[in-house]
């Protein structure tokens, strides 16, 4: 369902050209739990941004669920992100001063769901990550682990085909990190495709398959 062929990504950093990806070929099938590992600067985050349609590749092709995503317009990509991809970031990326319920309902709002439908789904999603009793809490009233679970609930809300997680346990203590990984494993058990980026081999062990990236190529 994810198929990258000879994907390259080049940044202009001041006068220097940075080749973050130098021809990546990668296929991830439906239902897989994949960890992408590599040292910092290896291009793993760039790879995730390309897979998540947050960034466009400089070359090569990328198809997601059979759609050629790399050629799409901004707004079409926004629709793909909304319907097919759920993001979990290292720094949670929740909206400040906004309740958990509204955070989770946000992608549903942009997806055109009605108000009542949104809230029902948001509550279901929060309940599924064990936060059914925290729906009206704001980020600063929640622990890091809880905030990350709100982020996961938000990623799940539109029922996407993949979850993309960028160092999801990076900002958490070991125990909270374990909880998050257990949620991912449970989701994987239900057939969800999960792509997780990490530099921590212990975290990567939870995945079914580990892909190594170094200097912008898969090794």
């Amino acid at each position: 369902m994810i198929k990258l062929t000879n994907v390259t990504k080049t940044y202009q950093m001041g006068e220097m050209m940075v080749h973050a990806l130098r021809g990546v070929d990668l296929t991830i099938n439906e239902g897989e739990f994949v960890a992408i590992m590599g040292p910092s600067g290896s291009g793993k985050s760039t790879l995730m941004n390309v897979i998540g349609c947050l960034d466009i590749p400089s070359g090569g092709s990328y198809t997601l669920d059979g759609l050629d995503v790399s050629q799409m317009s901004d707004d079409a990509q926004a629709k793909v992100r909304n319907q097919r991809i759920g993001f979990v970031f290292q720094q949670f990326n929740l909206l400040p001063r906004t309740t958990a319920e509204k955070q989770v309902a946000l992608p549903l709002m942009y997806g055109g769901y009605g108000r009542t439908d949104r809230l029902t789904r948001a509550q279901e999603a929060l309940a599924s990550v064990g936060l059914g009793d925290r729906t009206h809490h704001k980020p600063d009233e929640l622990s890091g682990g809880q905030q990350q679970r709100v982020a996961i609930a938000r990623a799940l809300a539109t029922n996407p085909s993949i979850i993309l997680a960028d160092e999801p346990t990076g900002a958490l203590d070991t125990q909270s990190g374990e909880e998050i990984l257990n949620i991912f494993k449970a989701l994987h058990g239900q057939g969800m495709t999960i792509v997780m980026i990490t530099h921590d081999p212990e975290v990567a062990e939870h995945a079914q398959r580990t892909i190594w990236i170094r200097d912008g190529v898969i090794v």
Partner: peptide
Amino acid sequence: GIRKAVGALRR
């Protein structure tokens, strides 16, 4: 950025 990541259109 967050809003766009979860599917907000430019509009």
